[in-house]
Design a binder for these strands. Structure first.
Lengths: 341, 341
DNA sequence: CTGAAAGCGCTTACAG
DNA sequence: CTGAAAGCGCTTACAG
């Protein structure tokens, strides 16, 4: 077992100073060709690599990005991480991932943990509980300390920082409008409780679409699901009891649950009931019938967020730059769960 | 913007030495009650938190774990990360995630990047390309430097280290035996190319089950898929051309693709054709019909891997401990894609 | 009870 | 051309 070699050891072996070794390895013209060669050869032989931690301390930057997300087993968040990773790696950054598990406390703890020097900046999406409590002090604190934060998807207006979002309201509006254009007008909505920012925005888009088409908004056709565990039952009841010809669901889990409930009831999809989901994930693609969804390009969102963060980290002119909100475009991926007409 | 406060600044403000501040914050009995109080109050006021990087350098350990996996958008790997995260956080560790994208070079680069002091140990699953090349020098190098590695799922016998696996061979055997017990005997296999370790083991289990039941192994009923892009076509052909009454697929993507091909052909599942997949993911659960699978508890695997790594990191007696291979038990989750008899 | 010194592994302005 | 010194932010054995 040969431990990693340090500058100090090389210096000792070669009987020169640490400074000389350091400079030689940087090919500094301060050092004689001869010494440089000797040091470099030795370093190569022993596979010297500078210690990241020492560099971080010295440079006061870690070249690592912290990501805080509610869950990793949600396909959407996994794709976002993937997008962040790509751009981060291209720029020599590493990625630390922390999960809040939708818990405010875990979000706070993780942020504090990482804020103590471990990372240069955050990319994050708020936990449900944080959105409910509307307590963002941990985030403003971090920003106050000069650490940049980029929020994505589940964001809040209460914090000023860079953001990457989609136009949830518009995307929902267009999805519902598409259903209406196909001649459907008894459209149910399966959404989250209102404190989930994106759920609320999508709900608003749904309502707007109905109103613009002079369809009345029927509260019985709107179910707001708080806990995923209740979704089966509530959705089942909706499908069974109400005379509806279409469903707009704000995520793909709700959409596929609706599909299964409809199939169980013997309804034909899309002839008897059409369904549109949100977030173009793996479930929508492989469901039978496959599900028409509003695509939400997680890779792109993650990539964009990483780009914005890195730009801010590497720009010299501190924070005189204005904060930006990037809107990633969405589009409807039409599949089997909606009629083609 | 108030930057994070350091010991030095507190010392200066309070007109004492840095040592005194440091000791006071640790509530050392070396320091007078009075001074301690004063320092602690001040530190609290300014929300002092020790800098992680400095601690890492000093202690020569970072309290962070590096995870290297082929992909994060595969549900299984996402669950493993989740499992690692949990146990890591409980023990005060952070998690850096790097993706190899199934590429040998990316795997090597990422490992080297992290090995330079950023982390205390690795948890990893081999990329396809690495398994194909059988080149593991980057891993043995890291281990040689005294950095522990725990491999999971896609492992190799060429490297001695702790491992967490399932008994792929046995699990496959049992799955196929279950099909046979249900009276099915024209069982096709959809698997990966042989160099993917887990694919090969599952293939072997399939063959063993056939042989033990005196069924002949028909090469026409075995398709080995190299690239996921070809899977549609190959599976379609298999389902269309061959008279089979069951399919065993070594992952859930192959399984759901088989389901869709069978449905397209007008076959009833499970009456005309039964299907068992591998990896109990989200697709299997939400497919219509839902898919019977061999469950592979990623959370548990990740948790176990983290536990083993942390134990090794925190045991004093270096490496006189033997390396262990933990086998996580699997079981068959029976759903709609297999007959109930 | 307090503080100076050494050290973790590096870089770089400065002296010689 | 080479090296000693200071410093990144901390801890701790040691001196006073």
């Amino acid at each position: 077992m040969k431990r990693k070699v340090t500058l100090k050891q090389i210096a000792k072996e070669l009987d020169v100073s640490i400074s000389t070794v350091s400079k030689s390895l940087k090919d500094s013209s301060e050092i004689s060709e001869d010494t440089r060669q000797k040091v470099q050869a030795f370093a190569k032989l022993y596979n010297y690599k500078p210690n990241n931690i020492a560099l971080s301390l010295k440079n006061r930057k870690t070249k690592t990005i912290g990501i805080i997300i509610p869950e990793i087993v949600h396909h959407f968040f996994a794709t976002v991480i993937s997008g962040v990773e790509n751009v981060a790696n291209e720029n020599g950054y590493n990625v630390i991932v922390c999960l809040s598990d939708e818990s405010f406390d875990k979000e706070v703890i993780n942020m504090e943990m990482l804020a103590n020097g471990s990372i240069d900046g955050f990319i994050m999406s708020l936990s449900k509980e944080t959105q409910q409590k509307k307590d963002f002090h941990h985030i403003s604190e971090v920003i106050n300390q000069g650490m940049p934060v980029v929020m994505f998807d589940r964001v809040t207006n209460d914090i000023l920082c860079d953001k990457v979002i989609i136009d949830d309201n518009l995307a929902a509006f267009q999805a519902v409008q598409t259903l209406i254009d196909k001649g459907l007008n008894k459209i149910a909505l399966i959404t989250t409780v209102d404190y989930v920012s994106v759920g609320k925005l999508r709900t608003d888009g749904y309502i707007k679409a109905l109103q613009m088409n002079d369809l009345k908004v029927n509260e019985n056709l709107i179910i707001k699901i708080e806990d995923i565990d209740q979704s089966d039952e509530l959705i089942e009841k909706l499908i069974e009891s109400e005379k509806i010809d279409a469903v707009f669901a704000v995520n793909e889990l709700f959409a596929v649950t609706a599909i299964k409930a409809a199939l169980r009831k013997g309804l034909r999809i899309p002839e008897d009931i059409a369904i549109i989901g949100f977030t173009d994930g793996i479930i929508s693609k492989y469901s039978t019938p496959s599900i028409t969804t509003v695509s939400q390009n997680g890779i792109k969102m993650g990539g964009k967020a990483a780009k914005m963060l890195i730009e801010r980290l590497e720009s010299d002119d501190e924070d005189d730059e204005q904060y930006r909100t990037e809107v990633i475009e969405t589009h409807l991926v039409e599949r089997e769960s909606t009629p083609t007409l």
